[in-house]
Amino acid sequence: MRAGRRGAPGYLRLDRSRAGGLPAWAWRTIIVAAALGAVELTARFALDGSYELVPITTMAERAAELLVDPGFLTQHLLWSSVSVLVSFTAAAVIGIALGYLMHGHPWWNRALRPYLSVFYAVPIFALYPLLVVVFGTGLMPILLIATAFSAVVVTTHASLGFASVPQNVDKLATAVRTSRSQYVRLVLFPAALPDIIAGARLGFAYSITAVLASEFILSTRGVGHFISTAYAGFMSVDMYAGIFLVAAFSLVLIAVVDRAAAHLDWRRR
């Protein structure tokens, strides 16, 4: 249906493929180019080399240099990547196990559900200083915070996934006398897989956030620490290059995870 029917209000959602002669993707490109161009021009001409902002091209150049700097790679990028991977893996295992426990045992479901639902209302990072005093500024407090922060979202989604087996499928599994292991392997996990994937995707994003936030607050290594130190030392090129790298990596990683999730999620096929 063409839009712009004379007199029809905009809220009627008469869908259209173009506005101002341009399709949606072109408008998106224009908006992104305008935003990046505004940063570039403001930094280059309006602020002219001040500390507050550096041009996008300078950020990208410095980010490319950092990617071949062995010190940055081993001290910061590798450290943060290991923290994210370990905490995410632990969160996925713990989350799926807890979700399964809550599905199989109603008592545990009633015991844990209220805490899961309020977990993200309480700023979990308040615990980080406590863990730093107990374990020092090494990897352990970061892993504990990041695992806890991301395990809850995996647990919530996994338990919902396990509860989503259709009743007639359950009846069919009983009728054909599946064993417990067959039921788990052939019915329960395939049914829960889309929810588990959705939870794992969120858990991955939460792991990145938790690791970087912990490194910002108190740590001796990691990309968050690098950005924080650059900020404190008025090294704005390094600070923006670090932010540029994190943003680029997050966008690429989440896009890859989304693509993999779409491939595995049978509900989307």
Binding site: A205, A213, M239
Partner: peptide, 16 residues
């Protein structure tokens, strides 16, 4: 896409 970027990395910009 903006929501995907960990917001915590952007907060030095607020302080700057």
């Amino acid at each position: 896409a903006v929501n995907t970027v960990p917001k915590v990395t952007l907060f030095p910009i607020f302080f700057v």
